[in-house]
Design a binder for these strands. Structure first.
Lengths: 107, 107
DNA sequence: TTTATATATCGTAATATTGCAATATTACTA
DNA sequence: TAGTAATATTGCAATATTACGATATATAAA
């Protein structure tokens, strides 16, 4: 009990759910938006920008990163995060495919 | 501790997260897909279709319904659920606006 | 090497989500 | 009105997520 029964669903369905989970917390939406606004891909002023602790931000970044949405490299002694646009685009396409298919089928 | 600090974020950000949450569980993705496939908006063979118990499906339906995505009306003694396409379309538009804005801003 | 700064990880408490059995409710039918 | 089928609600156990303090690790500069 309590755990999601992933085996009940098709891979496609699990993929959509997994993608949606990344955006299902406002901190992660805010982080993505903030990263995109910094032309030069600046790093952890995210902690200052959003009002969460450094470990919490780091945890959310890990979720975003595990989804493959980040490219990070060091600039000086600080980490420079950048959105992986291609991957982001893939997510958008998959989500749109789900929406389009679902609504076109419906009564 | 533990609870999401919604007050830290703009309404737009919280809206995106809330929408994403609906799709962040495979059962709900599957339910939406299944409902859309039934031309005649058929009801709780969802329970048979997906392998979850009736109360669990009902709970997921409630989440989807609370998001405003369902139109339900009784047909005989069974409930006929139907996707609210307009609302669904609104969700799609909002998500796409987020994606487009985020990726166009980025480095 | 020491020091300072930036980021990640660990451990843990608080809260949320998932799933189901039992039960209640609703709507039809006899 | 009693019985039946469909759906919702309640209560609870298992698990996941969120958040943070403490600490570890990594990089740069002194």
């Amino acid at each position: 009990m309590g755990a999601t029964k992933l085996n009940l669903y098709t891979d496609d369905i699990n993929t959509i759910a997994k993608i949606a989970k990344v955006f299902a917390h406002p901190a992660r939406v805010a982080i993505l938006q903030y990263i995109s606004k910094q032309q030069s891909c600046i790093c952890n002023d995210i902690v200052d920008e959003i009002g969460l602790s450094q470990p919490t931000i780091s945890q959310h970044l890990k979720v975003i990163n595990d989804a493959g949405l980040l490219k990070g490299n060091f600039e000086g002694n600080s980490l420079c995060y950048c959105l992986d646009i291609e991957r982001f685009q893939t997510f958008q396409s998959l989500i749109n495919a789900f929406f389009n298919q679902t609504k076109s089928n419906c009564c």
